[in-house]
Design a protein around this nucleic acid. Sequence first.
DNA 1: AGATATTTCTTGCCCAGGCAAGTAATATGG
DNA 2: CCATATTACTTGCCTGGGCAAGAAATATCT
Lengths: 165, 165
Amino acid sequence: MDHMDEPSPWLDTEQQELWQDLLTVVIALPAALDRQLQRDAGISNFEYSVLARLSMAHQSTMRFSELARDCDSTLPRLSKLMDRFEAREWTARRIDPRDGRYTLATLTDSGRQKVVDSAPGHVAQVRRLVFEPLTAVQRRHLGAALSSVAETVRREAGDSTGRPR
Amino acid sequence: MDHMDEPSPWLDTEQQELWQDLLTVVIALPAALDRQLQRDAGISNFEYSVLARLSMAHQSTMRFSELARDCDSTLPRLSKLMDRFEAREWTARRIDPRDGRYTLATLTDSGRQKVVDSAPGHVAQVRRLVFEPLTAVQRRHLGAALSSVAETVRREAGDSTGRPR
DNA sequence: AGATATTTCTTGCCCAGGCAAGTAATATGG
DNA sequence: CCATATTACTTGCCTGGGCAAGAAATATCT
């Protein structure tokens, strides 16, 4: 329950603090983002990220598999989300004429409008929670460390979400 | 979708990269932890954190509200989890004799055994994903930056999870 | 070409978790 | 000391998401 002085069975005190803070960020940050978006725009952070990613794609169109990968989603999850989006007419679905296995998602005008409307509030929340509490130097350091961890985690997730990347 | 050169409506390129990496960590890290724990111990990260927190408490006993706060959980969520834990006989529930509104959760011996058994694999995963990809200096920087963000996020979440802290 | 394998998306079933309403215990105010 | 308010937890209902199995299209192999 406490420790042992063997090769690596536990974390030291400094590591435990880092770990606790990371857990808090990893749990409470998405919750905070969801609350803001839900309150101001009626969508979740995941839903926002899908709309936003589509809005940046060429012709506002992407294959499901690519979109799922970029948004750290699984295909079933995305497929069901697109059902809801289609019901709201924020996106449209059509089979890829070049390869009938692929399905293409396209953002509609009202879908794009939804992104435009909800982006400012979301970005402000991100600024408030992540960037404002840090100094410029801390941001660079955080960026460097996060890119290493993100790469490792992505590799780990690659097997489940869909391929190396 | 692109940018505007006003006060603060968007993030610059460096910030966007940091933000993208943070999103990946925030989404894929819990998923990776869940996979390992689910595979090797049959429990989720949240379930592990509750057992682990209880195991560190005085007399292996805590009030529900306190436990929920420490594990970044809501009361309904914890209440239902404790139902499942009781069914497995990992915890026991009893009303606080000092104040009948509180409920006390106590870790049983087999509950403690579960923590002891699953801890090494979990800790190894944390090491692999978070600490190993970083240099010692990066860890300190990451720790410093995370503590600021964690504090901000906690304050934000305080209103929903249960008071200032 | 035909059979089989692979890739991409969809569907069905199940469970965890959020929210709001309900319950039980204690505190507060008249 | 009774009525009302507050605190701590529980329950019911509903939705999102995971996983495994299925369907449709294309690629591969002989």
